[in-house]
Design a protein around this nucleic acid. Structure first.
Length: 480
RNA sequence: CGGGGCGUGGCGCAGUCCGGCAGCGCGCCUGCUUUGGGAGCAGGAGGUCCCGGGUUCAAAUCCCGGCGCCCCGACCA
């Protein structure tokens, strides 16, 4: 345990993670097992994520809609792989209105079935395509083991569902979203991710192909942070989503679905936070800058508070999310600890000495503080926040590269996974047997077959595990 | 479902072995003094000791049964 009442990362990463969440008041455990309450400080992060992602989705032509929580149980069964994948995880409503229902209703574990059943009503002609729909929703998946934000029974997400006239249009859409997710994760969350294709065993139940963004957490484990699926015609055939082509023939639509969830908040926490608590990237910080006024005597107090209000007004004018901590019962040091635990990126300390010099002390959450002129404080802090945002990304990227390994042989791989872990790039023969054997022996799985820009400079032509000819490069890691 | 840990004021814990007034730290309320890295003093509020049985003059403590939570693994975003 560190001196902040937070378990040290080096002692127990899981306990640290929970401590950070509790300290920052992001969430709390609900009465029902596996369920969580997202508290205001956590929900605000989600709202900021939503605003950013929603904007990006709208810019690329997607429209929001809302589909119901309850799905007829029979719908789920219409796509064979889908039902096989999700049936064990569903919660089912069997009684309502004091009576047993004729057909049980499934609480959505994802909305493909209800959405494509509606698409079949709405789509008649190639002129109706592409249909680009997104929804922000809650879903329920009955998990064996849950963790705050990372895996809870109920969670919030956006799920996009699109219908296209051709396979290549659908493929382009799936890749567009993958890039969009990556952009969001890098530019807003300051979380670098490796993108690529999931193997058959890891892909979404019912998809042709699944693409994924994988981040590396501070314990060197991978977090699947967003997935984008090319569904092919699996669901359009199951739900009879047909359209008339330009030539007059009939065809099934080509579909995609993709999602990113409140799990991202867990990723944000585990990417940046430290032993003093949450570190929130500025662009997603509920409070970006807090002003802490300092005074000894009453005559100082009024002058300092007045200056503090002026400073806060300047910050607000610069478009920043601010707080002025003018609580009288707390000493400045105590306030510092509190706001640090909450992850606020920048703190301004303002006392009589600073006031006399027309300055404020600018303190960064990641360390270091220095006086700065009060004039143009809005612009100054804006600049510091941009630097911090950039610095968090670069630090995370550097950490990921430090723990990314190439050219390991089988025994080196095993040794690494038994020790500190990390990402391992290497050749993969494509064999399901190698894949499952590796998982069994080391707990590591193929996170993705990486996109070209993440691949090793030298060709990976032999399977890292069996030594046979490789069909592609793969990235292995233990995962959340 | 297996293994480990735990359930005692809001939070963190001691007390349980060996039964005997329900405690400590933090937080909370009131007042005064304080305020440049977790303030001090004084006064105060707050408890079905996870639940149900049993043993006993007497149970947080012993016995039997149950429930819940956290961590590790199997399932998964």
């Amino acid at each position: 345990m560190g001196n902040r009442g937070i378990t040290l990362r080096s002692e127990d990463f899981s306990a640290w993670y929970n401590d950070v969440i509790m300290r920052a008041e992001l969430a709390d455990y609900a009465p029902v097992r596996g369920c969580m309450v997202i508290r205001p400080r956590g929900y605000r992060i989600w709202e900021l994520m939503q605003a950013a992602l929603d904007g990006m989705l709208k810019e690329t032509g997607h429209e929001n809609a809302y589909f119901p929580l309850l799905i007829p149980q029979s719908f789920l069964a219409k796509e064979a792989e889908h039902i096989a994948g999700f049936a064990p995880q569903t919660a089912v409503v069997t009684h309502a209105g004091g009576k047993e229902l004729e057909e049980p209703l499934v609480i959505r574990p994802t909305s493909e079935t209800i959405i494509y059943s509606m698409f079949s009503k709405w789509i008649q002609s190639y002129r109706d395509l592409p249909l680009l729909i997104n929804q922000w929703a809650n879903i329920v998946r009955w998990e064996m083991r849950t963790r705050l934000f990372l895996r809870t029974t109920e969670f919030l997400w956006q799920e996009g569902h699109t219908a296209h006239a051709t396979e290549s249009d659908a493929e382009a859409e799936a890749l567009l979203i993958l890039r969009l997710y990556r952009k969001f994760m890098e530019e807003w969350m300051a979380m670098p991710v490796v993108t690529g294709l999931k193997t058959e065993s890891e892909k979404f139940a019912g998809a042709l192909r699944t693409y994924s963004c994988e981040g590396m957490m501070q314990d060197n484990k991978a977090l699947q942070a967003g997935t984008s699926h090319n569904l092919g015609q699996n669901f359009s055939r199951a739900f009879d989503v047909q359209y008339q082509t330009e030539e007059g023939s009939r065809d099934y639509t080509w579909n995609t679905s993709w999602g990113a969830s409140t799990r991202l908040i867990g990723g944000l926490i585990m990417t940046h936070s430290d032993d003093n608590g949450l570190v929130c990237p500025p662009r997603l910080a509920p409070v970006q800058v807090v002003v802490v006024p300092i005074w000894r005597k009453d005559e100082e107090k009024s002058a300092v508070l007045e200056a503090g209000q002026r400073v806060e007004a300047d910050l607000k004018k610069a478009g920043l999310r601010t707080a002025l901590d003018d609580r009288e019962s707390m000493k400045p040091g105590a306030k510092y600890f509190e706001w640090e635990g909450r992850g606020v990126p920048v703190r301004l300390e303002l006392g009589p000495r600073d006031l006399a010099e027309n300055k404020v002390v600018v303190a960064r959450r990641t360390g270091g503080k220095a006086p700065s002129p009060m004039t143009d404080i809005g612009a100054t802090v804006t600049g510091v926040l941009e630097e911090l945002q950039q610095q968090l990304f670069e630090d995370a990227l550097e950490r990921r590269e430090e723990h990314s390994h190439r050219n390991l042989d089988r025994s080196g791989f095993i040794e690494l996974m038994e020790g500190q872990g990390g990402f391992v790039y290497g050749g993969f023969c494509g064999g399901a047997r190698c894949e499952s054997e590796i998982k069994e022996k080391t707990k590591a799985t193929i996170r993705v077959l990486p996109d070209s820009e993440f691949r090793s400079p030298e060709p990976q032509d032999k399977c890292m595990w069996c030594g046979n000819k490789a069909v592609s490069e793969a990235v292995w890691a233990k995962a959340y």
